[in-house]
Design a protein around this nucleic acid. Structure first.
Length: 313
DNA sequence: CGTGCACCCTAGGACCAGGA
DNA sequence: TCCTGGTCCTAGGGTGCACG
């Protein structure tokens, strides 16, 4: 069984959505450049994807990858809803050999608590290639809404289409999570981890020492390092650095404060060390970052404001 | 602001205790 | 016996300082 992981902050874009009544043309192999989600309205649907033959019944869903060849492996059949969409970043195929339970546990409990600007810390959703949603009538209804929006486009219909697609993906991911995780109680260390993240988020601009964190959580710092690394995949120090540099970038863009003042504001006792850390994480020094931003701002793009300049976040 | 260096603190692994 | 929470130990990475 194939599974895919999709970043919780992925940009989903619906390209097309229709109800397809199966006709003889479906015997001819076809492929398209986008992801395609199929949901059977009238069964059966005899569909072959690559070498795999499926007989889908009402309510069954199947996810096809871009350029994946598919066709009817025998004549006849009913109809299915389909939606084509793009995703940025792309969906990742998960090796069938992986332990799905631990993977879901990690996805369910990990880095989504971290408050940084990078997409890699967004929670991931795991969805199966082939599934029958428990809320199938809600899914069918959602497909009907999408097709209606597509047939009579008005107002912000494209935005509503994308929301519908996100809902279909969410239902699929929630189903899988419920099925696999129903008998698993999350360990107490998750609670400690959540409280730790909360403390880091609130105090990253102040002096945040190992001793003070130990006091606040009444746990050995070594243990806190362990669970933080376990659930987030990064170290406490790196996370604090990311939060501080994120704030530094904002101050460099939006204020006239000197690099030294910003360093002190972010509890860097040594401005030189601040520059070094900034360069390590961002690839350029604070002053270069500010210069680059100013250059972009005055490069003639009238829509570029301080709050919207790209490539610098 | 970049680089080199020395020192110290952090993080990871080993280990233990307790509970199921 | 396995799993989870927690502690101890130590290698090496992080940090701060000096200098160009």
């Amino acid at each position: 069984m194939d599974y895919f992981s999709i970043n919780g902050l992925s940009r989903l874009d619906v390209k097309w959505s229709r109800l397809y009544n199966i006709d003889p043309n479906f015997l001819i192999p076809r492929a398209n450049p986008h992801y395609e989600l199929i949901m059977v309205a009238d069964s059966p649907v005899f569909i072959q994807v690559g070498q795999e033959k499926y007989t889908l019944n009402g309510g069954d869903c199947l996810l096809l990858l871009p350029w994946e060849e598919h066709f009817a492996w025998k004549p006849g059949g009913g109809s299915f809803f389909w939606v084509q969409f793009s995703s940025d970043p792309s969906l990742e195929l998960i090796d069938a050999g992986d332990n799905l339970t631990s993977l879901l546990k990690i996805c369910h409990t990990s880095s989504n608590f971290l408050r940084t600007s990078t997409n890699e810390h967004a929670g991931k959703l795991i969805i199966p290639r082939l599934y029958t949603p428990s809320r199938r009538y809600e899914c069918l209804h959602t497909f009907e809404i999408m097709i209606n929006e597509f047939n009579k486009p008005k107002g912000y219909y494209h935005y509503r289409l994308n929301r519908c697609l996100a809902k279909l993906i969410e239902i699929s991911a929630e189903d899988l999570l419920d099925k696999v995780m129903s008998d698993i109680n999350l360990p107490a260390s998750i609670i400690t981890y959540q409280r730790l993240v909360e403390i880091l988020n609130e105090s990253y601009m102040l002096e945040c020492t190992a001793a003070s964190i130990e006091r606040m959580l009444d746990r050995k710092y070594e243990y806190l390092c362990n669970i933080f690394k376990k659930y987030s995949g990064i170290t406490i120090n790196l996370y604090l650095q990311q939060l501080r540099i994120q704030r530094a970038k904002y101050l460099l863009r939006e204020t006239e404060k000197s690099v030294q003042d910003i360093a002190f504001e972010l509890s860097f006792e040594n401005p030189l060390y601040f520059s070094k850390t900034f360069k390590k994480l961002e690839g350029l020094s604070p002053s270069h970052y500010r210069d680059k931003f100013q250059t972009l701002l005055s490069a003639g793009n009238p829509s570029l404001t301080k709050a919207t300049a790209p490539n610098l976040y």
